[in-house]
Amino acid sequence: MTYRSKKPREAHVGHGRKCRLCVEKVKAIDYKDTNLLRNFIDEQGKIVPRKATRHCAKHQRMVAKAIKAARNIALLPYVNDYIK
């Protein structure tokens, strides 16, 4: 009988560090606050995933909704200009 070695488990999301927005006790995110939201999009204009930002699910959902609303009214880009 062959014995398969187990793959090492992936690090748990948020392991070892708390959600930054939880620490600051943020209750709502304003979609017009582009200075804050720009921290959560990458240089292409994509929403940074939870693995990288270490947000909790609740805050990541808030951030994603705010970014999508800001894109709708041309406060944030869908795709950054230098890529087009």
């Binding site: 041309a74 406060l75 880009p77 795709v79 200009d81």
Partner: peptide, 12 residues
């Protein structure tokens, strides 16, 4: 300023 062009304009 707008983040992207709307109707070929960068302002709104």
């Amino acid at each position: 300023k707008l983040a992207y062009e709307i109707k070929k304009s960068r302002q709104g």
